[in-house]
Amino acid sequence: MPLDEDKYPQDTGRRRFVKGVVGSAALASVSAAGGAAITTATNRSGAGGGATEFIGIENTAGPAPRGMPIVPIRINDDNELEGIWPEVSEVQSGGGTVTVAEQDVGGTTYSSTWFQYCGVQQYPTVRPDLEADNRFVAEPGTYEWMSDMEKGQPLTVDDFSDYQNWGNGIGRDGLGKPAMGKWRQNEEGRPLPIQVIRSPEVPKMAAGEGKYSEIPSDVRSFIDAATEQSFLAYLDKCTHFCCVPQGFKTTADAGAEDAVYCQCHQSVYDPFSPVKKQFVALPRPEE
């Protein structure tokens, strides 16, 4: 089964920091409020970790402890899909200066710490101040409709023109059209795995229509601001054991025919059930 190699990072000669953050997070007794996300790990073990509140797609089955974080989207002038990277600033913490990337999205503080788990915190491309190409680019292989696309080709609105009736023989047709991709291309480090879905359900979630009326108002406000033209995206890293999930509408196993399925340990995620959760973000390597 295709486990992601980031579970077992190569030896770089740098002092390992993952073990250290577990103890430091416990001792810090941080909360999700204010600057807690930057106060825990500004020491030799790394930078920029701590208690983090995020909005993600809900884990509904399997061993995963929480959902996967949503990536806010914009569409550029060339009709290409881009992930929004938070605004970069410097703050004073623990007697020093720490670089952070965060901004208000629909009343929620969206931060780069949302993505600091499961080895992603070691990617140079998750560093707050690293300039990268934020376009979503194709990663063919999972979906037949992407077979004619080149790896690294930007995903565009036109690629999803049939999203209102698209189907692949799994689950319900017309629920949405998915694509596998990468985000934040930069020669210094590997891009981040993402999945994007264009679905008629996305604007309904933002508006709280019908069954979506039970979504809390602050989460709906975030969804409204983080989506565009019915597109929704999330970091494609299972929170259980760091695998890259097989994807949306890829199997009927475990009741995942209209959901996101992780093939490694059968965790299931519902992309149409956004939830606000908290976790302890792992610190990045010292910069």
Results as ranks from 00 to 15, higher is better:
residue 1 M to N: 14
residue 1 M to V: 15
residue 4 D to A: 15
residue 8 Y to D: 09
residue 10 Q to L: 12
residue 10 Q to M: 11
residue 14 R to P: 00
residue 15 R to H: 07
residue 16 R to M: 04
residue 18 V to N: 08
residue 18 V to L: 11
residue 21 V to Q: 07
residue 22 V to D: 09
residue 22 V to G: 07
residue 22 V to H: 09
residue 23 G to Q: 06
residue 26 A to S: 14
residue 28 A to F: 12
residue 31 S to L: 13
residue 31 S to Y: 11
residue 31 S to T: 15
residue 37 A to K: 09
residue 39 T to W: 01
residue 39 T to Y: 04
residue 46 G to P: 04
residue 47 A to S: 14
residue 50 G to C: 10
residue 53 E to R: 15
residue 53 E to K: 14
residue 56 G to K: 00
residue 57 I to F: 00
residue 57 I to H: 03
residue 57 I to Y: 02
residue 59 N to V: 10
residue 65 P to E: 01
residue 68 M to Y: 03
residue 69 P to W: 02
residue 70 I to D: 00
residue 71 V to L: 00
residue 73 I to E: 05
residue 75 I to T: 02
residue 76 N to S: 01
residue 77 D to L: 01
residue 78 D to Q: 12
residue 79 N to M: 08
residue 83 G to C: 07
residue 87 E to N: 14
residue 92 Q to L: 13
residue 93 S to K: 08
residue 94 G to N: 13
residue 94 G to I: 00
residue 105 V to P: 03
residue 109 T to I: 15
residue 111 S to Y: 05
residue 111 S to Q: 14
residue 112 S to C: 10
residue 115 F to K: 03
residue 115 F to R: 12
residue 120 V to H: 04
residue 121 Q to N: 15
residue 129 D to F: 04
residue 130 L to T: 11
residue 131 E to Q: 07
residue 133 D to A: 09
residue 133 D to T: 07
residue 134 N to T: 13
residue 135 R to P: 02
residue 136 F to S: 01
residue 137 V to P: 08
residue 138 A to L: 05
residue 142 T to K: 05
residue 142 T to P: 03
residue 145 W to G: 08
residue 147 S to M: 12
residue 149 M to H: 09
residue 153 Q to S: 13
residue 157 V to T: 09
residue 158 D to K: 14
residue 163 Y to I: 10
residue 164 Q to W: 08
residue 166 W to S: 05
residue 166 W to Y: 15
residue 167 G to A: 12
residue 167 G to C: 11
residue 168 N to K: 03
residue 169 G to K: 07
residue 171 G to P: 01
residue 171 G to H: 00
residue 173 D to P: 06
residue 175 L to Y: 04
residue 177 K to W: 02
residue 179 A to G: 01
residue 180 M to S: 08
residue 180 M to D: 02
residue 181 G to S: 03
residue 184 R to Q: 00
residue 185 Q to Y: 12
residue 185 Q to R: 14
residue 188 E to M: 13
residue 191 P to T: 02
residue 200 P to E: 04
residue 203 P to E: 09
residue 203 P to V: 10
residue 213 S to K: 13
residue 214 E to D: 14
residue 217 S to A: 15
residue 219 V to P: 03
residue 222 F to N: 03
residue 223 I to T: 05
residue 224 D to P: 05
residue 225 A to H: 06
residue 226 A to K: 06
residue 227 T to G: 04
residue 228 E to L: 09
residue 229 Q to S: 09
residue 230 S to K: 08
residue 231 F to Y: 00
residue 234 Y to W: 10
residue 235 L to P: 06
residue 237 K to I: 14
residue 240 H to E: 01
residue 241 F to D: 05
residue 244 V to C: 06
residue 249 K to H: 10
residue 253 D to W: 12
residue 254 A to Y: 11
residue 254 A to W: 07
residue 255 G to H: 07
residue 256 A to T: 09
residue 260 V to H: 04
residue 266 Q to R: 06
residue 272 F to M: 09
residue 276 K to P: 00
residue 276 K to S: 10
residue 277 K to C: 08
residue 278 Q to E: 10
residue 279 F to A: 03
residue 281 A to N: 06
residue 281 A to E: 03
residue 281 A to I: 01
residue 281 A to F: 02
residue 282 L to G: 07
residue 284 R to H: 11
residue 285 P to W: 03
residue 285 P to L: 01
residue 286 E to K: 15
residue 286 E to F: 15
